[in-house]
Amino acid sequence: MDWKADKFSSVEQVMDGMKAAHYICDSQVATTVYLACNLEKPVLVEGPAGVGKTELAKVVAEYLEAPLIRIQCYEGLDESKALYEWKYGKQLLYTQLLKDKLDTIMHKEDKLADSIEKLHQYDDIFFSPHFLEPRPLLKALEQPDGVVLLIDEIDKADEEFEAFLLEVLSDFQVSIPEIGTIKAVRKPVVFLTSNNARELSEALKRRCLHLYIPFPSAALEREVIKTRLPQIGEKLRKQLVAFIQAVRTLDIRKPPSISETIDWARVLLLMHAESLNRELVGKTLNVILKHEEDIRVAEEKLISLTAEALKADDGMTGE
């Protein structure tokens, strides 16, 4: 019945599909995506920075083989940048070009009232779809083959913008005063992401399914590294994941995210490392920690952290 129905017949199918697109997720993520597509509801994704919230939307787009339309939210984003704008330039240009034409139209009528009357017959031409500049939201609704719409970092936008989104999110339509209501040709799959910079409104939350992506468990993180960087040795993989997991429990400002784990794995790969050691970790600590004081905290405990990570590997292989 729907353009995405055959891709969403079961949760397992979604999970496998995402895995094929190199995105490893737990079953909560897969279930929510599955539900969102079947209930035709937007998904609000929350969680710490760098756990793959934006990536999720990209992967779903890839899985559906649909284009991804993305709006990056920021303070001051308004409907003229997100939804539509009139092509003022084109309108002006046309009025200039058509000046002569207007003269000929008006030519015979010498009375002002008659001219106005005549003009009224052409009244809406300058505010018709031809002069409409569609912005991402409108584009997403107009796509004939369905799209994945990603509204990134909604918490950075103003509250007004959030309120303005409500119509799109609940009915998949927008109202343009001069033209009327435009409905989605095919309902897009919508993802909203938030870093919790501020509390989102109840109204918005009510219209969305909610997904919280936490930092991954060790097993999941190992799986992610394995999929992204298959070249990396098993031993090193276990060690570095154990190390990252330990660092996350420290009292630091910005715990390392998955993307940082992947970066670090890449760096270690470049350095042809076979296994973690204190010196190596000390040198590359700035890849996973981005604050001076965080690095200092980690450096203090470097010996025990590294030892733990090495031990974790032993324990795991022993099992």
Binding site: S27, Q28, T31, T32, L35, A36, L39, V43, L44, K205, R206, C208, L209, H210, L211
Partner: peptide, 9 residues
């Protein structure tokens, strides 16, 4: 999981 996605926000 399904109920969690639709109820807890």
């Amino acid at each position: 999981e399904a109920l969690s996605a639709s109820l807890a926000k």
